[in-house]
Amino acid sequence: MFSPAAQAMAERLGLTLGRANVDEFAATLEQLGRTDPNLLVVTSDSRGSGKLAPFGQALPRQLVEVGIAEQNLVGITAGLAACGKKPFGVSPSCFLTARALEQIKNDVCYSDVPAVLVGLSAGVSYGALGTTHHSLHDLAVLRAIHNLAIIVPADNLETREAVRFAAAAARPVFLRLGKAPLFDLHAPGTRFAAGQAITLRDGGEVALIATGETVIHALLAAARLAERGLAARVLSLHTIKPLDTEAVLKAGRECRAVITVEEHLVHGGLGEACAAVLLQAGVSKPFRIVGIPDEETVTGSQADIFRHYGVSMEGLSELAVSLFTVA
């Protein structure tokens, strides 16, 4: 996932490697499920991808398998939620948010049932499996649906807290998870609240507003920029909706430039959400959206794809420097 230089930087920052968010999700869910018999998991032959086989073994009455049928997965999840259950419908994000989008829109969000949908192996987590398995559209389409909280955790702590939030939520929630082991970004006990960005590093030159598995790259880039005398602010904007507009505006007003970073197409995701907030408030600063461009995605692992499109310590720090050089 990281270049040797980035790896060395992570070590200098004292970061330690945690597990994959999907593992943290499964463990948290099992923990919650043991004390809440109403908590159910609904899978579409996806308990392997969701690391939920132990959940199914420990709590067989709380797992519903629907087979490879995502529309049915979401409809059933909605029906369970309407009848007093707390279901987590779990399926790869590429299938869940494309094939079953109408069920998400109508059965879950419009009907307003307390269901949780979990998009697994999101973004380009599946790497070289290619475009059928990438979900670079999910944030865009889900942002355009009313009544859905969208959370993209950046590390295990954010995942744990997001799962707890979702389990207690009275309204629909979507969690977007990847499957690569991640560095722990937050000290234990860091406060997580849905809808509130977490500031990982303060600075007034450039704001790096990132989400999900790209946050670590923004943090490493900020550390490298500091070595060059540029103070970068890093925000983990884990909740895409409702967006923490206050944090985005503050970053836009206080910093000389803004770069957003996401594992998503550059259209319709975090970047455009931030741009809309800033521009409508009259905040106009040099602004760049880093993500996957609108082209057939290059073949490679998630790390290859990130590096190719500049989602890396090197790519992001060079982009930041170029903004000031041009300006």
Binding site: G75, I76, A78, G79, L80, E102, Q103, N106, S111
Partner: peptide, 18 residues
């Protein structure tokens, strides 16, 4: 439940019956 798009009622009812 809110319905109107076709093919949604039966999956929802499977969830309710489950």
């Amino acid at each position: 439940m809110n319905t109107g798009a076709l093919g949604h009622g039966l999956p929802i009812c499977v969830g309710m019956a489950l």
